[in-house]
Write a protein that binds this DNA or RNA. Sequence first.
DNA 1: TCCTAGAATGCAAACGATTGCAACCGATCG
DNA 2: CGATCGGTTGCAATCGTTTGCATTCTAGGA
Lengths: 333, 333
Amino acid sequence: MAERVRLIDVAREAGTSVSTVSRALNGSDLISPEVVAHVRAVAGQLGYRADKRAQEFKLGRPLTVGVTVPDLANPFFSEVLKGLNAAARAGGYRLLIGESGEDPAEELRLVDELVDYSGALVLCSSRLTRAGLEKALAQPVPVVCINRNVKNAGVVAIDYRVASRLLLEHLTGLGHRRVLYVGGPASSWSDGERRRTLRRTARALDVTLDEVDGGWSGNHGYDAGPAVLHSRATAVITFNDLVGIGLLSWMYDNGVEVPSELSVASYDDIPIAAYSRPPLTSLRNERARLGELAWQQLTKRLGGDAWPAPDLLTPELVMRASTGTARRRARIR
Amino acid sequence: MAERVRLIDVAREAGTSVSTVSRALNGSDLISPEVVAHVRAVAGQLGYRADKRAQEFKLGRPLTVGVTVPDLANPFFSEVLKGLNAAARAGGYRLLIGESGEDPAEELRLVDELVDYSGALVLCSSRLTRAGLEKALAQPVPVVCINRNVKNAGVVAIDYRVASRLLLEHLTGLGHRRVLYVGGPASSWSDGERRRTLRRTARALDVTLDEVDGGWSGNHGYDAGPAVLHSRATAVITFNDLVGIGLLSWMYDNGVEVPSELSVASYDDIPIAAYSRPPLTSLRNERARLGELAWQQLTKRLGGDAWPAPDLLTPELVMRASTGTARRRARIR
DNA sequence: TCCTAGAATGCAAACGATTGCAACCGATCG
DNA sequence: CGATCGGTTGCAATCGTTTGCATTCTAGGA
């Protein structure tokens, strides 16, 4: 934990002025090559590292992107972060990450805090109320929303219309005529979209669609077990894979065979979805790409352009053993 | 996206100097109450928000803690982050998070970058080589290691001696005499600790312990399936729950019944461990507490004290259905 | 020999805040 | 009535950089 070496120390040691050192280190062509070499050598010897905070402070806008996610423990979000982080770093930016814990009030607090340090904001699956969102958009920095549609902001989302169609067509193809949707958190825009598109598609396919409330975690899925069984559906679609896996577990504990008595399918296809028992049919999406696209929208905007049109990502159905034809009605043994 | 309001704008509007505004806003007792009220009112009206970057720059050390984790998608790490984040925020600090992707070289790069913006570093389950670690510790900021033991740094870790004893005693209690450990990444210190303590305890309990290499993800666990079956062990301990769940899935796919033919237990007890099929016996630990303790060590150190003694957290065995007495030998059907 | 163009370098202001110190005020006291 | 004092307030330096502009120096042409 040595003392910091500053520009002035290098200048003194090299026998020049700070401006010369600064220019030499930053590769200005105003400086003679010999001096550049000398300064570089001295700087290296002294172990000089520019104070990034001072640099950025002087330069203006902070090179930081503030990001909020509802739940860091959900691989969906961590992979979005991975993509966003890679893109942002390539563009010279860092990520400041905040987790709201699925709580809209906390998310608002986070936004308020992050904006102090960030030159831009990315709200991932924002749980903000409409009013909260307005406040966030009123901040003096550009905002991109992932999986949430808003005006005056960048928008990157998964195409849930396609998603819901893929799921329902798969299930009807297996002969299911009555499907239950186990929903997510009420504050989730994407839950709303899933419901909306499922309903529409169900109508078009002449499928009966029921809905119950669930949540976002394995616990929520497990707890939804009884409600699922009491519905008369032969197939279930869950808000996400964690819920789906929890539900599978309840079915197992209660002797309901999947898929012969009940089919289960879900959104997101997180890695462990392949390792549930039975493996979960789910909708794969390019989550990392969501992050990348968010960054692209941001750079365009930071470059002075208007917001581009929303980017929509098309998911892909991954069929696994949790869905099949219904051979008999589920009943608790 | 309005223009930023600065201190000078407030001063002009309030008809005073910047110093007065600064003091009024920061609650100095040198200012008369009326002026404070007036300045506060004007500031509020103008929507003034202090430029945190300028503040911190002036004040000196950055109020940021840089953190590295190997894998954001592993709930173990996200919960450590949760605890660390809560504690750090309570202390007025923010987190700058970097993910190394289990790659030591990338982690070194991360450290190098994070240190430019951070007043302290937390390395979570660092995969750094000894040399890399030395470099990291030579940085001009205090460093805390979570789940890695080093000199001249803060250390917070899980007590793997206890952990391994709990696991092996549980298994021997069920009658197992031959146990296989499916290991983690070679760069993981905690994998080393698990192996070391397992070996020692196995010797003490007169259990035969075999080892194979695995990894950190569900895929690694699945891929270890054949090796597990070819070993003559009746019980398996996996590096972590993701590996355990992957392994369970392979056993299922290949007709091996758990636990009647093979018991599986693991470290960490991440939430979905309860929802694997069968539910996974695992070692619960207070991950969020790891983060908290790391912060406590840091504050002590930042306060000028020497590094406190390492904090060791004792895990707790959660028995679930993946372990039981071996009734017959596993064989692929 | 003197002047000047052009290259190289240094001086000092700036980014937005905090803070030590000096200056100022009215009131009290001698 | 002037000196003093406590309570307020403002001036200016400062944090570590970058950068516009002035300055210096060298060499070449007249």
